[in-house]
Simulated scan of single mutants.
Amino acid sequence: MLDTALLLAAAFVAGALNAVAGGGSFLTLPALVFTGVPPVVANATGTVALLPGYMASAWGFRQDMAAPPGLSLRAVVVLALLGGSLGAALLLVTPDATFKKIIPWLLLAATALFAFGPQLRQWAGAGQHGSSAFKAGLGMLLVAGYGGYFNGGLGILLLALFGLLGQTQLNAMNGMKNLVSALLTAIAVAIYAAGGIVQWPQALLMMLAATLGGYAGARVARQLPAGALRWGIVTTGLVMAAMFFYQQ
């Protein structure tokens, strides 16, 4: 009963965080691990729980989507699916012991991306706009692969990539971010399921809580100071990373 309450609470807050600013995986992954789910399975199960939120966000931005310079919309879709597949396949062959050692470093990297996201996007926007199709495709493939393996900080990486490629319209950038996130997460979830590394009772329970949290988060987003929310998420990420380091 206590484990169920923890998973429901973590998923609800994670859904709310993703609706407002991101960072939901900082809660779902540790909550599953702390309730006894093996690390690789926990990563996959937590990703399944957050998939509806990605799909809803992509649908909400469907009219604003525009491919970044150097890539067509078809190329973005193909690369998102390919990268997500490769990242998910890599997770399947990662031993639990190895992934447990990697988790705190991934959490730290994702936390840093979240903390310095505005500066990273500003740097990307001030950089050299435009790129060759090869470099644009390679960047998209690498970021999608990261997302298929570990979802944390994915949105920041995608926005930075689109800025480097020369995309300047924020709505278009967010639309593509949500589309790529939904696509690579969907294909990754399919591979996780085929590989038998999803614990469906927990996933479905958390999926419902995350969806409710996303709705609640969207409603209260305007009442929360953006700075306080951002640093609250950063603090959560650092605490979770420290706890995983302590357990090693």
Rank of each mutant, 00 (worst) to 15 (best):
A58Y: 01
V198L: 04
Q199S: 14
I187M: 00
M207L: 09
A97T: 05
F114E: 00
G175D: 03
V33L: 08
T4D: 10
G163E: 05
T35N: 13
G127K: 05
A42P: 04
L229C: 02
A241K: 00
T168I: 13
T45G: 13
V20K: 08
A115N: 06
A110N: 05
A194W: 13
L29D: 01
V234N: 01
G214Y: 01
V189T: 13
V198C: 00
A110R: 03
G153Y: 08
L51E: 01
H129D: 13
V143T: 10
A97W: 01
L141P: 12
Q167K: 07
L106A: 13
Y246R: 12
M243A: 10
A209F: 02
L141Y: 10
Q119T: 08
Y146I: 12
G232V: 03
A10Q: 02
M240Y: 06
A210F: 02
D96Y: 08
L229E: 03
F12Y: 04
T168F: 08
G130H: 01
V41M: 14
F114Y: 06
G127M: 06
A228C: 10
V180Q: 10
K177F: 00
K177L: 04
Q119S: 15
T111C: 02
R219F: 02
V20D: 02
G130M: 03
A9G: 15
G147H: 06
M240F: 05
V93I: 13
Y246E: 06
A133M: 07
I103F: 12
L165R: 07
L86M: 10
G15S: 01
L212F: 11
A124F: 03
Q122F: 11
P30W: 04
V78N: 12
L73R: 13
T111R: 07
A133E: 06
V33D: 06
R219S: 02
L212T: 04
F244N: 05
Y192E: 07
A21T: 13
S131G: 15
Y215E: 05
L29C: 01
M55C: 14
V189G: 11
N43K: 02
A21H: 06
L164C: 15
P38F: 07
L86I: 15
A186N: 10
K101I: 14
A97P: 02
F116E: 06
S132W: 11
P95G: 14
L161P: 09
G127R: 09
A136H: 11
R219I: 09
G227R: 09
I191A: 11
L120E: 00
A160T: 13
L154E: 07
Q167C: 11
G214P: 00
A14C: 02
Q248G: 15
A21V: 14
S72M: 09
P225C: 02
M176F: 01
G166K: 07
